[in-house]
């Protein structure tokens, strides 16, 4: 247990150091983009204000930066959420299918398609979808977020028909860009597990195939998937920014690109700090999930001898 506490403290210390570095960099960025803002404020004052939760005021919106960014956050969050759900819904069954019958024609087709998916950038898929569904067929709106409904501090686009119509294309484009990465990893992991001795033994025992897939395959593939997901965090952020900018989705990515065009240094600096903080938070959450699912790391499983030498868990 002591080990965990030390690990946690170590991690918090590194995170604080990273945030401090980012804060210094963002002061420098602020000075680069809007020099007049740093004239009357040295680095110490800037850091002091950040600690008090004062991220400065946007030169364009004439509002506190924190407020501006938090207002745009729900749009980005909902887009990533819907896209992630789509990825999970597609990657799981396809991953199992292609791992269980890897030589089947359809499975090979799926894998070939995933290689194509890696080669088609998100903005091209998006452009093609806009051309087909918005311009030619006129089924879906090409940009914007549609009608939003206010729930306290959260503007949700997922409660209205127009909101759903607007989110379909960006979310599908984003998920098609992320899907191949996850599908290929899941398949590779599952195939490795399916060829291991415990699975062969379970098959020989006559355990139902679906139970083998779920309790051997999925359980053992979860850890690499979490690692992969945390490694793809930055890429997801980048793809989301590109998708947002293509569909003019009013999220934080679009906000950042607009702030760049408008030379709104104060907003850019605040964005840097907040995005880094969010990034650290999510990678900490991924690590936490990793510890939760990993028998070697979780203290309450280690004593029960569940973790075998091969790294496979018995159901």
């Amino acid at each position: 247990m002591m080990n965990h506490v030390i690990k946690l403290l170590q991690r918090m210390l590194t995170s604080c150091l990273v945030l401090l570095t980012v804060a210094v960099v963002s002061y420098w960025v602020l000075g680069l983009i809007s020099p007049q803002q740093t004239l009357h404020m040295d680095l110490g004052q800037y850091l002091g204000r950040l600690l008090e939760g004062d991220f400065g005021r946007s030169q364009f919106y004439h509002e506190p930066n924190l407020h501006v960014i938090l207002q745009k956050l729900p749009a980005t969050f909902e887009l990533v959420l819907v896209a992630s759900i789509l990825v999970a819904l597609l990657a799981l069954p396809l991953g199992f299918y292609t791992a269980i019958v890897p030589q089947h024609k359809l499975a090979r087709g799926v894998m070939a398609f995933s290689l194509l998916g890696i080669s088609v950038p998100v903005f091209l898929t998006g452009s093609l979808m806009v051309f087909l569904f918005a311009v030619e067929l006129n089924w879906l709106p090409a940009f914007g977020r549609g009608q939003v409904i206010r729930l306290g501090f959260w503007d949700s686009g997922l409660l209205s028909v127009s909101g759903w119509q607007h989110i379909i294309m960006p979310a599908v484009a984003l998920s098609l860009a992320m899907l191949p990465l996850f599908l290929r990893l899941l398949r590779a992991e599952l195939m490795q597990v399916m060829n291991s001795n415990p699975v062969r033994f379970a098959q020989a025992m006559g355990i139902a195939p679906w139970r083998i897939w779920l309790s051997y395959g999925l359980r053992n593939a979860i850890l690499p998937i979490i690692t992969m997901a945390s490694l793809q965090l930055g890429t997801t952020m980048a793809y989301t920014l590109v998708a947002e900018s293509l569909f003019q989705w009013p999220g934080v990515g679009t906000l950042f690109m607009q702030a760049i065009v408008r030379s709104d240094g104060s907003l850019v600096a605040a964005y840097l700090i907040l995005v880094s903080a969010m990034f650290l938070l999510f990678s900490a959450l991924a690590d936490l999930a990793y510890g939760l699912f990993n028998p070697y790391l979780s203290p309450w499983l280690r004593d029960q001898g569940v973790a075998s030498k091969s790294g496979l868990k018995a159901p």
């Binding site: 930055g234 890429t235 952020m237 760049i260």
Partner: peptide, 12 residues
């Protein structure tokens, strides 16, 4: 990711 880093650095 390098793409996110490149976006930030180049945009700034």
């Amino acid at each position: 990711s390098s793409l996110m880093l490149a976006i930030l650095v180049l945009a700034i």
